[in-house]
Amino acid sequence: MSIKPILFNTPMVRAILDGRKSCTRRIVNPQPQGRLCYTFAGGDCGTWGYPSKTAYENWGDEYKLPEDITDEELKRRWNPPYHTDDILYVRETWRKGLERYIYRADYSDTEKFYRGGKEIEMKWHPSIHMPKEAARIWLKVTDVRVERLQEITEEQACMEGTDPWDEACYENNGWHPTLSDPDSGGDPNMIDGFHKLWNSTIKKSDLDYYGWSANPWVWVIEFERCERGGVDER
C-alpha cells in the first residue's frame, strides 16, 4: 500500500463529493500495439501486473524480444500508476484563505466574489500545485485493470461521474428531457455522455491518439472514499 496524489478537474471533484464518481480511466503509456495477451507475472491469464518475459504479449516492434528486457524495465513501462489498496489524496483547484484552504469545486461556475464590498477576480491555484496538507478528499483503490476505452459499460459510465443531464446522453435517443417531464422518452445513454466527457479531457492535438475514436488502452481504477484519519503515513 502506498499513499499517492491523483489529479481531478473541478467537475470530477464535484462528482466525487456528490457520490457519483467511484472510477477513473487513465491512458496506458506506452500503448500496446496489436493484440494484447493477458498473461502476466505474478498471476494467471487475465490478471494484471506487468508482462512477464515468457508472456506472449505484443507491445510493439521494439518490445518483441522480451528476453532482452530487464525486470526493472518491465516494471517501469507496464506498472499501473495505482494499485489495489493504495491510498490517494485528491489534488484539486484551490487557494489558501486567511484561516483555511478553500476549493473551486465548492463554488458554482458563475459565483461572484467580493472583498470590502467590491467584486474581485478570485485567483485559483492549479490542482498540480496543491500541497498534500490541503487535501480534503482521500480515496482507497479497490480495483485496477486494463481494457480498451470503448469497452466501458453503461454502469461504468455512471461510475465515472457522467452527468445524466448532459445533452450528449440524449443525442441518439431522439428526445430531450425537461424538468417538468424528465422521463418523457426513456433512459439516457451514459456511454454517449462519457464519450463527450472523455474527449473534453484530451488535448485537441492528442485526440487522434487518445480520443474516444482512437479507442486507446486505459487503466481502469476503481476507488471508494476513506477518512484521512485512517491513513498510516509511516
Rank of each mutant, 00 (worst) to 15 (best):
T142K: 11
W175F: 15
D192F: 04
Y170H: 03
Y101D: 02
P81A: 08
D181R: 03
E119F: 03
D163Q: 06
C158N: 09
G116N: 13
R76A: 10
P164D: 02
T153S: 09
I128Y: 14
A168E: 01
I191H: 03
M190Y: 04
T84Q: 13
S184W: 09
P182Q: 08
F113D: 09
D109S: 10
G116D: 10
I69C: 04
D71K: 15
K118Y: 07
A135F: 08
R91M: 10
V141Q: 07
R136G: 04
Y89H: 14
E151V: 06
W165Q: 10
A105M: 07
P188K: 01
E171I: 04
E160L: 05
A105H: 08
K132E: 15
P131V: 11
Q156W: 11
E155G: 09
G161I: 00
R100I: 12
D109L: 12
D166Y: 02
E155V: 14
Y107I: 06
I191L: 00
E155Y: 07
E154S: 05
I152C: 01
D106G: 06
P182A: 05
G174C: 05
L98W: 09
W78L: 04
R136W: 09
Y107W: 11
D192M: 03
E147F: 06
K118I: 03
H129T: 11
E155H: 06
T153P: 03
L74S: 07
G116R: 09
H176Y: 15
Y101T: 00
V141G: 07
R115V: 14
A135C: 07
I87N: 07
A105Y: 02
A168Q: 01
H129I: 08
P188T: 06
M122S: 03
C169D: 01
P164G: 02
E160R: 04
P131C: 08
I152T: 05
V146H: 11
E119T: 05
P126R: 01
E154P: 00
D181L: 08
Y170R: 00
L139W: 12
K132D: 14
S184R: 15
W124C: 06
M190E: 00
D183M: 06
K96S: 08
S180Q: 11
Y114A: 03
E92L: 11
A168I: 00
R77N: 12
H176K: 14
I128S: 15
W165L: 09
G116L: 12
Y101G: 01
P182R: 02
G117E: 00
L179P: 03
L98T: 14
S184N: 15
E67K: 13
M122P: 05
M159Y: 08
N173D: 03
T178W: 01
Q150S: 09
T162C: 01
Y101K: 00
P182K: 02
K112H: 12
R95Q: 11
D183W: 09
G117A: 02
I137K: 10
E160S: 05
E171T: 03
N79R: 09
M159H: 14
E92Y: 12
P80C: 12
A157R: 01
N173Q: 08
E121W: 13
R145C: 14
R100H: 15
Y89G: 15
A135N: 07
P66H: 10
V141W: 06
R145N: 14
T142I: 09
A105G: 01
S180E: 11
R77M: 13
I69E: 04
E171Q: 05
S127Q: 10
P81K: 08
W94L: 02
P164W: 01
M190T: 00
I128D: 15
Q156E: 15
T162A: 02
D192L: 05
A157F: 04
V146Q: 12
D85L: 06
